[in-house]
Design a binder for these strands. Structure first.
Length: 556
DNA sequence: TTAGGGTTAG
């Protein structure tokens, strides 16, 4: 035998064995007649699972007659981690029929699987099983329950679990802090953090990531700075996860100088941190900087991944920079990322936003796998370029393939109707969205409806549409109607719409300028004067609009 | 004489 028992166990315990090495070890274990021992089977199941070879993992599991709780947990986890939730659940049900009782780790794994699968009923059932098994106070199951309930936005249930544990440990506190953050209660997150400090519990990287992730508005900037100060004092700023989340936090607070400050203070920022910086610039509209840092990353010899490439393609699309977009496309091909549905969908979007729907369609046509995001990208692109008929054909394809149309699908279809002037189709697609697909319309859908009806001259219908809604709409919806009033020179309706806008957004100059133009078109010069004087007196200014055209380049 | 595992970032 090549190995003695000790070295075999040592080799099996390494979690980074390749698939071929795992197979070799499997052969050695078989040769030594050790396969019946659940210890060895567990180790091998784990290694196969880490190498995404579920088939071999399951085969091994099925052939092992003596199944310990460890072996059961390994195989359930293998399926759950591969997002094979139904199989994980049915394995768990099989386990319940055996003599082996699930333990806290089994429950933790199944709880997580239910949460990731949005299986509310399953989660409640498993929670019941936890209580029946007297594991309701256990830290392992409780932390999994807190995360699961929070991820399903059931924060009250998460709090109940947390309060049910008399002496919560660090992980339990971290789960609750992250749970509050996920559900939007950054203040509760901070309160719990302070309570931890008062009780003398030392936070770790997880605690700070949970806490900082909740700080995502410019008004919370000073709180973010305070937490950043804590990280510096306690040395957590060198933690990769904390560093990247600090960069994101400052970016979301619209302070890119601070985000960059954190970034350059890191000894070796990892890919996620680079990505946080680049996405930050992109989301703040500084596309040039986003593209610059992407080039810098590549020049430094680092390799981007699909998530980062998709993010940079957004910057190229938003800035209509097809030159950068094609360079990134080259990088995508070089790296084999065109197999990533996320990347290819971003390529479609980039080409269409840059005015090259033909190239976008070429990417679409060559994709072997397409998801709803792919279809949304191509429908939006076709719609923006006036190909409404083709956009609707794509929608038909979504339904035929059994994909689930979402709110972006309908926004893209409404956009296609707007660009094609298809009023009846637009009305029908809006009806189908709400009645057939049960999708709650968002501000974006309402804006498209205003444009669709208003641009066709159906201003009264557009106005009645807003009035028929049960909840007040965002100012942008009224703004869309006002712009249609401007096109048709309807100053009576414009007066009514403007009153809504001035009440909601008294400082926004654009609407006042729009109204003034409508008055001018109607010859109401006294009203124009009064409006302009009001603006001067109130110090209200309109932000000038900008537009640009990127030079068209020839692409074979 | 082992082994499965609860909470983090773009």
């Amino acid at each position: 035998m090549l190995f003695n028992l000790h070295s075999l166990v040592f080799e099996l315990s390494k979690s980074h064995q390749s698939l071929s090495r795992t197979k070799e070890l499997h052969a050695l274990v078989t040769k030594a007649s050790l396969l019946r021992d659940p210890f060895y089977a567990t180790k091998l199941v784990r290694l196969y699972s880490l190498n995404n070879d579920l088939y071999s993992a399951r085969n091994l599991f099925d052939k092992t007659p003596q199944r310990s709780v460890f072996l059961w947990n390994s195989i359930i986890r293998a399926y759950a981690q591969n997002h094979n939730f139904n199989d994980a659940k049915s394995l768990f049900q099989n386990m319940l029929r055996t003599q082996i009782k699930p333990d806290n780790f089994t429950y933790a794994c199944v709880i997580r699987a239910c949460s990731e699968n949005f299986d509310f009923d399953g989660l409640r059932l498993v929670h019941g099983g936890v209580i029946v098994s007297s594991l309701g106070m256990d830290s392992i199951t409780s932390s999994a329950l807190i995360s699961a309930y929070s991820n399903l936005s059931l924060v009250d249930e998460a709090i109940k679990v947390f309060n049910g544990v008399s002496d919560p440990d660090l992980v339990l506190c971290n789960s609750m802090i992250s749970g509050f953050e996920y559900c939007g209660f950054w203040d509760k997150s901070l309160q719990l953090f302070n309570r931890m400090l008062r009780l003398g519990k030392n936070p770790d990287g997880y605690t700070l990531v949970g806490l900082i992730s909740g700080i995502r508005e410019p008004k919370l900037f000073s709180i973010g700075q305070g937490v950043h100060g804590f990280c510096l004092k306690s040395g957590f700023d060198s933690n990769d996860h904390v560093g990247s989340v600090l960069v994101s936090m400052y970016a979301r607070c619209k302070c890119m100088n601070s985000a960059y400050g954190v970034f350059i203070s890191l000894f070796q920022p990892d890919l996620v941190t680079w990505s946080a910086l680049i996405t930050g610039y992109s989301q703040q509209g500084n596309y040039e900087k986003a593209l610059y840092f992407f080039r810098k990353l590549i020049m430094e010899g680092k390799k981007a991944d699909p998530v980062l490439v998709a993010s940079v393609l957004v910057a190229a699309a938003q800035s209509a920079n097809v030159r950068s977009g094609t360079v990134i496309h080259g990088y995508v091909i070089q790296s084999g990322f065109e197999l990533s549905v996320m990347v290819s969908s971003a390529l479609i979007d980039m080409y269409s936003k840059c005015g090259f729907i033909d190239l976008g369609f070429r990417v679409f046509a060559t994709m072997s796998e397409r998801n709803i995001i792919t279809y949304n990208s191509i429908i939006l692109g076709l719609g923006l370029h006036g190909f409404a008929y083709q956009a609707f054909k794509m929608f038909q394809e979504i339904i035929e393939k059994g994909l689930k149309a979402d709110e972006s699908t309908f926004a893209a279809l409404l956009c296609a109707c707007c660009h094609g002037g298809l009023v009846n189709s637009g009305r029908e697609i809006f009806r189908r969205m709400t009645e057939e697909f049960c999708i709650q319309p968002s501000t974006e859908h309402y804006i498209y409806m205003m444009k669709l009806l208003g641009m066709a001259g159906n201003l009264e219908e557009a106005y009645s549409f807003i009035l028929s809604l049960s909840k007040p709409v965002d100012s942008a919806v009224w703004g869309a109607l006002l712009s249609c009033c401007e096109i048709y020179g309807n100053s009576e309706l414009a007066d009514i719409v403007a009153q809504q806008l001035f009440t909601n957004d008294p400082r926004k100059g654009a609407y006042r300028v729009m109204l003034s133009n409508i008055y001018a078109g109607d010859g109401r010069w006294d009203d124009v004067k009064e409006l302009r004087n009001d603006m001067v007196d109130g110090g209200i200014r309109k932000v000038p609009g900008v537009s640009w055209i990127a030079g068209r380049i020839n692409i074979a």
